[in-house]
Design a binder for these strands. Sequence first.
DNA 1: ATCGTTGCCGCAATCGATTGCGGCAACGAT
DNA 2: ATCGTTGCCGCAATCGATTGCGGCAACGAT
Lengths: 335, 335
Amino acid sequence: MSHTTIKDIAVRLGLSTSTVSRALRNHPDISEETRKNVTKLAEELDYRPNLFAQGLKNQQSQIIGVIVPQVKHYFFSAIMSGITDVAYKAGYTVIICQSNEDFQREVTNAQTLLSQRVAGLLVSVSQNSDNLEHFDIFIRRNIPVVFFDRVPDCVNSSCVTVDDYQGAYKAVEYLVKQGYRRIAHIGAQDNLSISANRFKGYADALKNNNIPLDETLVVFTGLNEEHGMEGFDQLHARLDTLPDAIFAVTDPVAVGAFIRIKELKLRIPQDIALVGFSDNPVVSLIDPPMTTVHQPAADIGKTAAGLLFEHIQSGRQFQPKHVVLPTELIVRQST
Amino acid sequence: MSHTTIKDIAVRLGLSTSTVSRALRNHPDISEETRKNVTKLAEELDYRPNLFAQGLKNQQSQIIGVIVPQVKHYFFSAIMSGITDVAYKAGYTVIICQSNEDFQREVTNAQTLLSQRVAGLLVSVSQNSDNLEHFDIFIRRNIPVVFFDRVPDCVNSSCVTVDDYQGAYKAVEYLVKQGYRRIAHIGAQDNLSISANRFKGYADALKNNNIPLDETLVVFTGLNEEHGMEGFDQLHARLDTLPDAIFAVTDPVAVGAFIRIKELKLRIPQDIALVGFSDNPVVSLIDPPMTTVHQPAADIGKTAAGLLFEHIQSGRQFQPKHVVLPTELIVRQST
DNA sequence: ATCGTTGCCGCAATCGATTGCGGCAACGAT
DNA sequence: ATCGTTGCCGCAATCGATTGCGGCAACGAT
């Protein structure tokens, strides 16, 4: 038992495939009676249009591609959830690829999605992507691309980011106002603007509050939980006395540091304060609940998908936009 | 600038499309020199095969479809990560749909994936799916389907589950051995085997340890955090004295109860013990770290995807399998 | 009787890749 | 000179849906 085609319907009704096609698409040339016969039989035979044939003919798919570094991180899965919902309402299907922070895999993913002739592409680049040429061909072939969260220099394509600099600045300034002076930073040394901007917000907040930047208080390890542990270990090994407070580049990094601090039986925030970035659900549940910078994850997904569909629909005259969503400092008991 | 086709290459080299196609597929009929010319030009022109044309011709896609209730829940995103990795290695692309626990949306998703002519389907059914006819057509058309975690009666298709009954049984028996007697259950009243089996494990563990099942200690609300709060509220309103311990059907439900317990300033486990099911990362970080039943989420995804590819490759003679993965009780400080 | 109009439908080309079949050139063997 | 073989390649059909163009039947108008 194979798939029902338009031809099966045509033969059974003594019609041409043209007529069946038109009937299914409600073309005005087709009489009401024929249309009813066709749709009835199509339903009976469980007809589903072959999207290969449609795509081939129309040179367009109803698929959008998404490339994220890690599917299982809350931040990205929340974004994907937002994207998926917007796409569903627009009648599009979503192909999700994860690069696993691997540059080569990101390139392969992009090529696969190009072969799929996706109608558009949503990308958050992997951590060690210094080269973004694999996306150029989408631009050249006029396939809309929207970058989100982790973005390159957005010249020819739209971007959705949050205000990383402001978020970091406000968080660190808050720490200063609370009386903390030796404020450490665990960040990531990569090509990502989020890492750079959050570090810059940290540095500027210190500077503008007359606290010199102490380089021994800054380590660069990465963006995940294990990097948080590693970063804390480096600070612990390097310093005679631990810092007053730590501003971590992401919530997972903060959680990594949190685990180490707990292992050392230190009290938060009395011995050391801790601030993350993202507002993952987990950080509100740990003890003490952690102060963090809220990022509207689902909104990022929805906004990025919205921009993409806007671009798809308006075609060449679309002007790339750079949307910056606000962040918000969520003060909890870790500071 | 549109997509490069096999014809573009053929024209530029004065060859036929047949020859170009064969050259790209390393057909032995093609001379080494021609093959080199073709592959070189293909690279220069950034040729990517049109998967619509290939799919149409081969009546097969290199796409597998995945339907999950919720993308952003850790358990499912971890499974998806496993699936995505296995698929990537097998050269397949993954389309992910989320049903949002909505039956109608699950049906629509299935139809979309059928139109996409997916090579196979991985499904975890939504909570209120009492009717599974929308998957019958895949079976009839010989498209492999593997259900995971939330499965129907697996007769004609493969299934991957964990041992829900044993997991629940061991958890509740452990509570009994620890001396707890008034053990409540917050579960879900739905058509899912996971809910039924975990409740059955709970009930049997009590019975076999000579504790009568007290129906006032059992509430059925749902599978998510808000249902945990709701379930706890119902118990709180109904009972004069709260139970000794709560066995929750999932970790999110346990976390919901956890939040309420904390709000009431009760101590865990002195005033009330708490056990979840899944071993989400969050439950090891809260205070106290929560006892739970570990489910190997990534393994579920990998096993399900593995079974699917096995089925795809062996075709009609494949015998559906039902794989049950073991669970493990992780004892922490909440009991 | 001729013509124009309207309603309704079919022919055939098209999208891009694949592949069975056939065919030509070049060569050596007889 | 004829024949068979080998290497290499092209013709043309095919997958399923779409659509410009044309065409026929039926009808009323002149």
